[in-house]
Amino acid sequence: EKIKSDFFELLSNHHLDSQSRWSKVKDKVESDPRYKAVDSSSMREDLFKQYIEKIAKNLDSE
C-alpha cells in the first residue's frame, strides 16, 4: 500500500490528465526510486491506470 501511494505521488508530480499515456509517462519517471519500488512493469501500468481513473473521476465530480 505504501508503494502504491508513493507511486501515485510520483505520478501526481507530473501533472497528468485522463489523456496521458503510460508509454510517455514511463520515460519521464523510470529513473525515480518510487518507480523502481514497484516490482513488475505490469503492476506499474496497472497502478498508472488506477491513477488515471482516479483523476478522471475527480474531474467529473468538479
Rank of each mutant, 00 (worst) to 15 (best):
D60Q: 10
K4T: 10
E62G: 13
S31R: 12
S42V: 12
E45G: 03
N13S: 15
F48A: 04
I52W: 09
E45Q: 08
P33N: 05
K28Q: 09
I3D: 05
K49A: 10
F7V: 00
S31Y: 06
L10G: 01
Q50T: 09
L16V: 15
K57I: 12
D32I: 00
A37L: 04
L16F: 08
D32M: 00
R21H: 09
E30S: 14
N58R: 12
F7K: 01
D39E: 13
S5Y: 09
I55F: 14
R44S: 04
K57A: 11
K4G: 02
D39K: 13
W22S: 01
K26I: 09
F7L: 00
I55H: 13
D6M: 04
I55K: 13
K54G: 11
Q50R: 07
S18I: 08
K36W: 08
D39S: 14
E45A: 07
S31Q: 13
K26E: 06
K2A: 05
S20C: 08
K2I: 09
I55S: 11
D60P: 11
L11Y: 00
K49N: 11
K2E: 10
S20P: 04
Q50P: 01
K24T: 13
E53M: 09
S41G: 11
S42P: 10
L11P: 00
K49F: 05
E62I: 08
E45T: 04
N13R: 07
K4D: 02
K24F: 15
K24H: 08
R21S: 15
S61W: 06
D32V: 00
S31E: 10
E53D: 07
K57S: 12
Y35K: 01
L11Q: 00
K4F: 08
A37D: 03
A56M: 08
H15F: 06
D27E: 14
K24R: 11
I55V: 12
Q50W: 04
H15I: 11
K28T: 09
I52N: 04
N13V: 08
S61C: 11
D17M: 02
L10I: 03
L11V: 01
E30C: 15
Y35T: 02
N13K: 12
S42A: 14
D6Q: 06
D60G: 13
S41Q: 14
L47S: 01
L47C: 02
Q50M: 14
S31H: 15
V29N: 00
K28P: 01
K26D: 03
I55C: 12
L11T: 01
Y35A: 09
D46T: 13
A37Y: 03
W22L: 05
S40P: 08
I3Q: 08
I55Q: 10
K26P: 01
R44K: 05
K36C: 06
L59H: 15
K49I: 06
A56T: 14
D27L: 12
Y35R: 00
H14P: 00
A56L: 07
E53R: 11
P33R: 05
E1F: 10
I52M: 14
E1Q: 05
R34S: 02
D17N: 12
S5A: 14
W22P: 00
Q50L: 09
E45P: 00
H15T: 12
R21D: 15
S5D: 09
S41P: 13
D32T: 00
L59V: 15
K26S: 06
Q50F: 05
K26T: 04
L47F: 12
R21N: 13
L47R: 00
K26R: 10
S12V: 03
K2F: 04
E45N: 04
Q50A: 12
K4E: 06
S20W: 04
V29L: 14
D32W: 00
R21A: 11
N13T: 12
P33K: 12
Q19N: 15
F48E: 03
V25K: 02
S12D: 13
K54T: 12
Q19F: 11
K57F: 08
H15P: 09
H14C: 07
E53T: 11
R34L: 00
Y51K: 02
F7E: 01
I52T: 08
E1A: 07
R34M: 01
L59S: 14
S61Y: 14
D27K: 15
K28S: 11
D39R: 14
S42Q: 11
Q50I: 05
V38D: 04
F48N: 02
S31C: 13
S12N: 15
K54M: 11
K54A: 10
L11K: 00
S5R: 12
M43G: 06
Q19G: 11
S41Y: 07
H14Y: 15
E30R: 13
S23A: 10
K28N: 10
S23D: 15
K54E: 14
F8N: 03
K24S: 15
E30P: 00
S42E: 14
E1S: 05
R21T: 15
S20V: 05
S41D: 15
N13D: 15
A56F: 10
S41K: 10
K24P: 04
L11E: 01
S20G: 04
D27S: 15
E9C: 05
D60R: 06
K49T: 10
D27Y: 15
A56Q: 12
W22A: 01
D27M: 13
S23N: 08
A37C: 06
K26N: 04
H15C: 09
Y35S: 10
S40N: 13
L16W: 04
D6V: 01
